[in-house]
Design a protein around this nucleic acid. Structure first.
Lengths: 223, 223
DNA sequence: ATCAGTTTCAAACGAATGTTTGAATCCTGA
DNA sequence: TCAGGATTCAAACATTCGTTTGAAACTGAT
């Protein structure tokens, strides 16, 4: 037994959460996989909820730091000029895809994360929002600077759609496999494929929304 | 009490499944909401799993029949000529969006469905795949006829990405709300927004995948 | 070698789960 | 009107869940 019990539990939990979901993964499954006693989770983490939070925080904090750093680097290089939308998208989603591609456990985590956005469990959503608040604010500002003509609401929706595509991209190809024979062994290819799709969606002509309120000035092309 | 117990249970279960997830929704919550006795679910459906299956089948069968019908209508009108990719996408995703927009319970169901694609529960995935098999085959054929130059694998990936965007589009704006103030009250606007995004993604330039195998002849534009 | 602090362990806890039971009640057709 | 099947009901079933407990085992510094 090389690694300490705490880390073994984190790893085992991460894998089991992806495979069975948060609720369906029991303490007994986790401790059995981690070759630890049943009481070990409560001893090291306090509760199952605290363990879930620890599993997410371990990776998510790092992930969002990387995103901020990527944006910092881009903005430093641009010296005050607006970034290209493509650069912004690539820095945000690229970090995620690369994490998924870097290691089996990274992929495991990204699958878990993608699924959790829509998970209705209250406390998970709460600290997810909390963990994301800073990053979103930064990227929002960068996008508004890059595309001042695009209404903020339109961009938010597209960002939301992009998150959905990312989620499915990493969230396992189980659903995809039922559509036909698929090769998902090449992470680099996945990155390229997803990026093309995301940029295509982002740059699509803005729809003409028939709003109940006064119509905003129309912009034909997003970027 | 107008409606019969069986229907009341189906409606209550559908709502609760969206709000709390499949596992976290208990028989006691369902029967309480449906104003029925605890034993009623087992009496009318046999088990909780059978109830879940019934909840999905009630809507999903109808949904996919609509999709087939929409495709039939388009192909009849085209008289053997290939359809435009935009038509195909609109007929597949449009049916889903319209169901979500048609009624509160329709929206409820679409949110549930979107979340379930990535749900790891074995038996749910199995009959989901089974229910989708026919539709996917039809749409695959239509797409290949419309875009014979696009490698089937590329299209499958983009279809997968589009499903992700659809999922997030309907799967509640809980996640979206944490990004900023959002108005999701207008289903028509959502339909238009999502369509623009999907078509933009579908028509994006094909990525140049550096495959390990022999490179397929490259096509610069998908459609 | 001793001992305080940390970690592991087997066992049990109460609460909540899906399901079953058998009697009570409702409804319908003869 | 009344028998008989369909439905509802309160109660209990066996399991399983996350958590707690108190003793045993281990660890490293004095």
């Amino acid at each position: 037994m090389e690694i300490d019990t705490r880390s073994r539990i984190l790893d085992a939990a991460e894998n089991l959460f992806v495979e069975h979901g948060l609720d369906a993964t029991t303490m007994r499954m986790i401790t059995a996989d981690a070759k630890a006693n049943l009481a070990a989770v409560n001893y090291h983490f306090g509760s199952k909820e605290a363990l879930i939070e620890a599993v997410f925080r371990r990776r998510l904090t790092w992930l969002n730091e990387q995103r901020i750093a990527a944006l910092d680097a881009l903005e430093a290089e641009a010296q005050g000029a607006p970034l290209k939308p493509r650069q912004i998208v690539e820095s945000f989603f690229g970090v995620a895809i690369r994490l998924a591609a870097s290691s089996p456990s990274g992929k495991t985590f990204m699958r878990l994360l993608g699924r959790t956005y829509t998970e209705p469990t209250e406390f998970v959503r709460r600290f997810l929002a909390e963990e994301y608040a800073g990053v979103i604010a930064r990227y929002n500002a960068a996008f508004f600077k890059a595309l001042p003509d695009v209404p903020k609401e339109e961009f938010l929706w597209r960002f939301h759609f992009m998150m959905g595509a990312l989620s499915y991209a990493v969230s396992g190809t189980d659903a995809l496999r039922m559509l036909g024979p698929i090769d998902d062994s090449d992470p680099e290819a996945l990155y390229t494929r997803l990026m093309s799709f995301l940029i295509g969606g982002l740059r699509a002509p803005l729809p003409e929304i028939q709003s109940q309120a006064v119509r905003k000035p129309r912009v034909k092309r997003a970027a």
